[in-house]
Design a protein around this nucleic acid. Structure first.
Lengths: 133, 133
DNA sequence: AGCTTCAGATTACATCTGTAGTCGTATGCG
DNA sequence: CGCATACGACTACAGATGTAATCTGAAGCT
């Protein structure tokens, strides 16, 4: 399944669905975890059966977003994809798709929608100060 | 198809897929348009057949994101969903899902990924100044 | 009046996603 | 040693999505 010739794996990271992302969050928070552990962690927000969580884990392994290591009769799962990379990718996609790649309009939108608290604003100011050095 | 009793339509706006969004962009840029017009406008970036565009338009009509008005033997399509609403919704979803609803971390991420140009930064500063009044 | 043509409506179909259930088997308990 | 279990693997299946092709009927051209 190599795409053309020898050389390192060029396979672009496959997209992770929303349900899969919830599983990733559990693993990012703490890893490695067993399937049952993951089910326990996401069980609160999502009402998934253990089977569902297992399916999602398998798909994530297939997508090479998660690695397994055997632990006796079962697997321990740990993220391969880093949260920062995922978050960065998703953010970029959105900004590209909706704001022509510019971050300012995004911020403007959030501001207009009153999605910015005073704390947010202060934080952003601090960030900008840092950026300007 | 009213969901329970009388009263205004409570139907939550159905989600618009990425392909459908491309069609919406064409209509937001200029409307009303015929299906052929839309195909012409998106034809550049996406390599879609006219049939595909028509399918997407139908789905958007079904989702009540687009309205039709007859124009002789054909339809003119115009957006019902406003771009600002769509963009706001998508942005909010992302911020909620990935940043706990806080905008500052999103900005931080974009900054870290060097997704902020100097212009962006200047613009954001201006925005913040405005917000603080 | 008939034929061509263009439009929307309907149908198609492979993938991806959400959400599980079932199978086969290694294992630990008694 | 045999049986109940707990796992991962495989199978299932409906709805969404991407991407079209075909059907049907109205309109216009000759």
């Amino acid at each position: 399944m190599a795409e053309s010739e020898e050389g390192q794996d060029t396979t672009r990271p496959e997209r992770i669905s929303e349900a899969e992302h919830a599983v990733m969050e559990a693993l990012w928070e703490h890893s490695p975890l067993t399937a049952a552990d993951v089910a326990g962690k996401v069980g609160g927000s999502r009402d998934w059966s253990l089977a569902t969580v297992k399916t999602l884990l398998s798909r994530l392994v297939a997508k090479q977003a998660v690695a397994t290591e055997p632990d006796g009769r079962r697997f321990l799962y740990r993220p391969l994809l880093e949260r920062a990379d995922y978050v960065g990718g998703e953010s970029r996609r959105l900004v590209d798709r909706l704001f022509g790649g510019r971050a300012a309009p995004l911020l403007a939108h959030l501001a207009e929608a009153e999605a910015l608290s005073d704390d947010d604003i202060a934080e952003i100011e601090a960030l900008l100060r840092e950026l300007k050095q």
